[in-house]
Computed example of a mutant assay.
Amino acid sequence: MAFYDLNKQERLNVVAEISNNMLIELGTADLKNTIQYFSDEDTYIRKSAYLSLGKIYLAKPILRPKIISSLEKLLPSTDYKIRQTVINAAGEIGKTYFESVQHFFDRGLFDEHHSPRNAVIGSIKKMGEVNPVPVLGWARLYLQHEDKEIRREICHGIELRGRKYPGDILPLLQELQHDKTARVRNTLVHVIGQIAYKKGCIQTVVEHLKQWENKQLVTAALEEIIDVHDRYKDFAVLTQEQARQYIEDNF
């Protein structure tokens, strides 16, 4: 039976069982249950497992080395779901202790399967939102990587921090303004739009874009900002017309 076919109490019982079984296994060399949870076809079982492991890491400092070593044992798995869940678990830990799990993202960025790579993007988002200094510092190392997909994934990953604090990521985005790959530039324009529609953000974004040299990309970004204010009109502070007028008055 799928996780969300269960009622609320049954789901709570399943989560408690997952957490307890993984906690027991951390005291042994046997990761049988953990492997089962990390490879489960039900995404919510896998999610319950990596969330539980993140909570154990925070609550029980004595087990932290064992948790890291267990994740390191699972990362080379041939099952992409296990690798994906390892990255997500590292992401939970990295929201507080990024330096302890940085090496998982250094490897996950280059995974042959898109699911672990997407887990890296998701983890950068959730870690960068609450632990920005080390996460953004790490992300910057890959902004000029020779692989266009790495550059694109990093650009996408830092977006969430920018939705509240656009000034934190705009200098990083600026480094991509002359990227020769259309897919990277399109992601860059998309991210600029995404960080411009919340309260106080359009002012920061527009002011920063004045410093950029690639005027063609800046024009595309300004058009995206105006368009986003229509697509997200239920969440945007300004109407589309107000956003257009602000740009005309200030750029």
Rank of each mutant, 00 (worst) to 15 (best):
L12P: 03
L6G: 03
D249A: 00
V120D: 04
I121T: 03
G200P: 06
V120Y: 08
M22R: 03
L209Y: 08
I18D: 06
I93K: 00
S39E: 10
N131R: 12
E41C: 05
H113L: 00
G54T: 01
L58N: 03
H190V: 11
F98R: 00
I225C: 15
L209D: 12
A119Q: 08
L53V: 02
I62V: 14
Q84L: 13
E99K: 11
T239C: 14
S39D: 10
D227H: 07
T204C: 14
L23T: 08
P132C: 08
S123M: 05
R151K: 09
M127V: 14
P116L: 13
Y246G: 09
L23R: 12
I202P: 10
D234C: 09
A119S: 10
F105C: 08
P132I: 10
Y97I: 10
K47E: 15
L160K: 05
R185G: 06
Q144V: 03
M1I: 14
K180M: 03
I67W: 10
I195V: 13
Q177T: 09
I225V: 15
T85V: 04
L63P: 02
C155E: 05
P65M: 06
N21A: 11
Y50I: 00
L170H: 00
N88H: 06
L12M: 12
S70M: 13
E224L: 11
F104A: 12
I24C: 09
S100N: 14
A49K: 10
K198N: 09
R163M: 07
W212Q: 01
L143R: 10
L217P: 06
T187M: 15
R231P: 01
G27E: 12
L238K: 04
A220H: 00
G27F: 11
L23A: 11
Q240M: 04
A29N: 08
Y97G: 11
G27D: 12
S77L: 07
F98W: 02
E248S: 05
I169E: 09
I18H: 07
L136T: 02
A243M: 02
L26N: 10
I35Y: 14
D30E: 08
D5E: 12
I35T: 15
A59M: 01
I82R: 11
R83Q: 10
R151F: 00
V218K: 00
I247P: 09
